[in-house]
Simulated assay, not measured.
Amino acid sequence: MVAGETSGDLLAGRLLSGLRPRLPDAHMHGIGGPAMAKYGFVSDFPMEKLSVRGLFEVLAHYREIKGIQNTLRDQLLAERPAVFIGVDAPDFNLGLEAQLKDAGIPTVHFVGPSIWAWRGGRIKKIARSVSHMLVIFPFEEEIYRKAGIPATYVGHPLAQVIPMEPDQAAARAELGLPQEGRVVAILPGSRMSELKYNAAAFVGAAKLLLQRDPSLRFVAPMAGETRHRYFQELIAQAGLQDVPLLIADGKSHAALAAADAVLVASGTASLEVALFKKPMVIAYKMMRASWHVLRHMGYQPWIGLPNILAREFLVPELLQDAATPQALADAMWLQLEDAAHRERLRQRFVEMHFSLLRDTAGESAQAVMNLIDRTGSLD
Rank of each mutant, 00 (worst) to 15 (best):
E57H: 02
A310P: 11
L72Y: 07
A117K: 06
H353D: 06
E141M: 08
S266R: 15
L314Y: 12
E64P: 04
H228I: 08
P81F: 10
Q179C: 07
R295N: 12
L11G: 03
A327C: 12
S7L: 14
P214M: 07
L59R: 07
M192C: 13
E64V: 09
L76C: 11
R119C: 00
L378E: 09
A259S: 14
Q320L: 00
F313P: 06
R73Y: 04
V42M: 05
A274P: 02
E272D: 12
L158P: 05
A98G: 01
P150G: 02
A283Y: 11
R346K: 14
A220N: 14
D91F: 11
L76M: 12
R348T: 05
P325E: 12
I115H: 08
E272F: 13
K251I: 05
D242R: 15
L11S: 03
A170I: 03
M297E: 02
R80L: 03
R128K: 14
F45A: 02
Q69I: 09
G104Y: 04
H228N: 11
E233G: 06
G4A: 04
L76Q: 03
K277I: 10
E48P: 06
L50I: 02
P150V: 08
Q75I: 02
R128V: 02
L96K: 09
E165S: 10
L15W: 02
I162C: 02
D373Y: 01
V161I: 08
G4C: 07
T107I: 04
D373C: 00
V42T: 05
A201W: 05
L336T: 09
E225I: 07
V183K: 15
R20C: 05
L345R: 11
K38C: 14
K101Q: 12
V262Y: 14
V154M: 03
K49M: 13
R80E: 13
A238P: 05
H156V: 01
G13F: 06
R212H: 10
S17M: 03
M286T: 12
L16T: 03
A223V: 14
G4L: 09
A170H: 01
I372F: 08
E272N: 14
R348I: 02
A173D: 10
A171L: 11
Q326A: 15
G121S: 08
F45Y: 07
L175R: 01
R212G: 12
R182I: 11
V2D: 09
A331E: 07
Y39D: 13
G32F: 02
G18L: 09
L256I: 10
L314T: 10
S266Q: 14
K49A: 01
A274H: 06
G120T: 04
V293K: 01
K49F: 10
G376Y: 13
R22G: 09
G30L: 08
F313N: 13
F92G: 03
I162R: 06
L345Q: 14
S193A: 15
S266W: 14
V111R: 15
L378F: 01
A78T: 12
